[in-house]
Design a protein around this nucleic acid. Structure first.
Length: 283
DNA sequence: TGCCAGGCCTGTC
DNA sequence: GACAGGCATGGC
């Protein structure tokens, strides 16, 4: 990777773990090479990032947006201090110290999670790669931007199906067409009240509370949005309702809206990553 | 080979 | 409101 060998910028960071942040399942276009560099496409740029030591991020990219994208401008100490006195959560935050919720582009985030429905992360990454290769703009010989809603809206159902979307193809197509036609302004969501933004997103086909909350948390700045997927649901039931047999989705939603505080979404990421790595065995 | 995956939608009770 | 079944496909 010749580019990377050329004098990367060095950014001083505290309370930050690059690998945790990029590999915890919130974004799908990052890959790590054997020499420790992470490569990803952000907007129209190809970024190369590495963390040679805990307090430093090396960035071989012309990107002033790194601090914003990685949420390096927020105090993780303040976020952790806002968490409830909850030993399970505090342990998860300790196990994955430095994990931050990053700030993604709303359409890419929404589209990726529409594709994620009942899919494994490895498959989601493949779908996102195929969509980018076939409908994104080329950046160089091997990299493409994530396709715009307009580009997806102009695709045929069969073309999207061929990107391994399966039954999700019609949802992604319809959602792209609604956004392309202006029926929903994704960039306006962040200035709405949370409940209203959630309501707007759920109008899109193939978007329920889980995908809407992922979009609001990972790309619209709603730090308390708490996506409940199969992993988190399993974790919540085991940790917080161990002896209660009848726990409905409504019960879980009510619990997560009150227990975790204003940065519930960050808490969710710690619990999510813990649940996955716990299942996979000690790392 | 069979289960299950960062769900959503519809019908039924 | 709660719950079951269907939807496509592929990793493990």
């Amino acid at each position: 990777m010749a580019l990377v060998a050329e004098m990367p910028n060095r950014i001083n960071v505290s309370d930050f773990n690059l690998a945790c942040t990029l590999e915890c399942g919130q974004a799908f276009r990052w890959s790590r090479s054997a020499d420790g560099w992470f490569e990803g496409v952000v907007g129209k740029e190809i970024w190369h990032l590495r963390q040679p030591s805990p307090g430093v991020v090396a960035a071989a990219v012309p990107a002033a947006g790194i601090t914003r994208y990685l949420s390096l401008d927020v105090s993780l100490a303040d976020i952790l201090a806002s968490f409830p006195d909850d030993p399970h959560l505090l342990q998860a935050a300790k196990d994955h110290a430095g994990l931050r919720v990053i700030r993604q582009e709303p359409w890419e985030c929404l589209a990726s999670f529409i594709a994620s429905s009942s899919k494994q992360i490895v498959q989601i990454r493949q779908i996102v790669r195929l969509l980018s290769e076939r409908f994104g703009e080329p950046i160089d010989d091997t990299h493409h931007t994530f396709p715009t809603a307009s580009a997806i809206a102009r695709a045929s159902h069969q073309q999207l199906w061929d990107c391994k979307l399966g039954f999700r193809a019609k949802n992604l197509l319809a959602a792209a067409q609604m956004i392309d036609s202006g029926k929903l302004d994704l960039n306006g969501l962040q200035s709405m009240e949370y409940d209203r933004a959630l309501e707007e997103l759920i109008k899109l086909p193939g978007v329920g509370e889980k995908i809407a909350n992922c979009t609001l948390l990972f790309s619209c700045g709603f730090n308390h949005a708490f996506p409940i997927d199969v992993w988190i649901e399993r974790s919540l039931r085991r940790i917080y309702f161990p002896r209660k047999k009848r726990v409905t989705a409504r019960d879980l939603r009510a619990f997560t809206r009150t227990h975790f505080g204003p940065y519930a979404g960050w808490a969710q990421q710690y619990l999510f990553f813990s649940e996955r790595t716990w299942k996979d065995g000690p790392s």
